[in-house]
Design a protein around this nucleic acid. Sequence first.
RNA 1: GCGUCGGUGCCCGAGUGGACCAAGGGAACGGCCUGCAAAGCCGUACAAUCGCGGGUUCAAAUCCCGCCCGACGCUCCA
Length: 462
Amino acid sequence: MIRLYDTLTRTVRPLPQREPGKVSLYACGPTVYDHPHLGHARQALTYDVLRRYLEWRGIQVHHVANVTDIDDKIINRANQEGLSEPQVAKKWETVYFEAMDELNVLHPHDRPHATEYIHEMVTFIETLMANGSAYQTETGVYLRVRGVPGYGDLVQRSVEELAQGAQARVAADEHKEDALDFALWKAAKPNEPTWPSPWGDGRPGWHIECVTMSLGILGDGFDLHGGGDDLIFPHHTNERAEAIAAGRPFAQHWIHNAMLNVGGEKMAKSLGNFRTVRELLDEHPQNARALRLLFLQTHYRKTMEVNAEVMQQARAAIERIDAMARRAGASMPLDDNLVDPAALEAFGNAMDNDLGTPEAIGVIFDTLRQANATLDSYAAGNAGLADQVTRLVGAVVTLTNVLGISAAPELADDADIEALIAARSRARQARDFVEADRLRAQLAELGIVVEDTARGTLWHRR
RNA sequence: GCGUCGGUGCCCGAGUGGACCAAGGGAACGGCCUGCAAAGCCGUACAAUCGCGGGUUCAAAUCCCGCCCGACGCUCCA
């Protein structure tokens, strides 16, 4: 049985399934106004792995990830760059998805944009106004937080505790009935994009978009709602409040991934200490897979660091997967139907337990070592091991596939390199090792590593 | 201040009451293999102990209490 930690109840619970065999997942996506940083990557990768695993288990996943394409950040950016808000949003959305593609993140089934749902948001707010949950002031429409039962449950705070925080921190808005109340609709300000509404021109508040879109696409009582744990309050708390106030059954289960730290501090736009996905990707061709592996080696609910050293370590581990694939590919036909069952079972048990990817990675590398050992023995002439090799290699291939870190296909053959390899092989045949070593050094300068195996010489890029 | 979560080997990082497993990855050292390498395999030291101090228990890294340190949240933030 698949179990996941639920933020609301603070317990590991069985995966909710409104409909057996299906899971609806809404993961809060990015506000598009700048390069995505590594924190966004961790968020996207967390839900990508969850989805891949569920699908591998035969569960049909409906994955929705929104794009916030209108908010203060976007407006500021547009003003800075002399562009329109839609231009800014479009530009950075493209950058975001290009980066996610390179990280091998599967596309969500739906990718709704806030500005496409204005009408639905207005309707939602009308419901809240009609049942007395919301009120209008000069500055907008607000939700009466104190009228929402269990408002602070997601953050484990009482309304009174939250009120103290709000009093101390939030600039007083004398128009609001209560400092805790938050905007559903923001009245138009000069030089801002606006939409018409029964309460005058304006634009939606942040939280209303996710409630409207998640309920609109996935329907009442959908299964999973996720995002970074910094969204627990206020974003998810307020989304939940809106749904409760509207009398709509909301997410059955809340899942949150932990933050990334830099030098012991949270990586954040506001702290300016972030690294962009782009920078990391450009640094090394294997970084996309290495980053994914690095994230998988740490549990998704644990804060972690990303730095050059651990990236290097992850690349070395990725290289082991590729090395095995090269070796196996050179000597073994693979058969999808022959996969070591013990490895699959151990992997499944690890993943079922709140997405235990660190343990699952352990299973993969254990299997990898067995595969290599068996491969050695097979190459030494023990032909009876053929099936066992196939099973073990097959398990590694299958499982790395599930997690999105499978061995990269070899790059197209390069004639020049092949010629050097061939020349070196001739030199070795002639036992001219000085020449052979000279050619190997030459290849090394081109970033090529050669490996002499029982089945001939293999090479790959460093 | 309040809330939440953490502090495990040289580094990263699992484990969260019990069987010689403190997993797995990286780095190191030795051996086998190799013309030499690379890759791989085998082995070794690495945490005789899991932030510190108490306690519960037949049994604790794992539970309880206190303390120290850190991260995150307390309305921009994945």
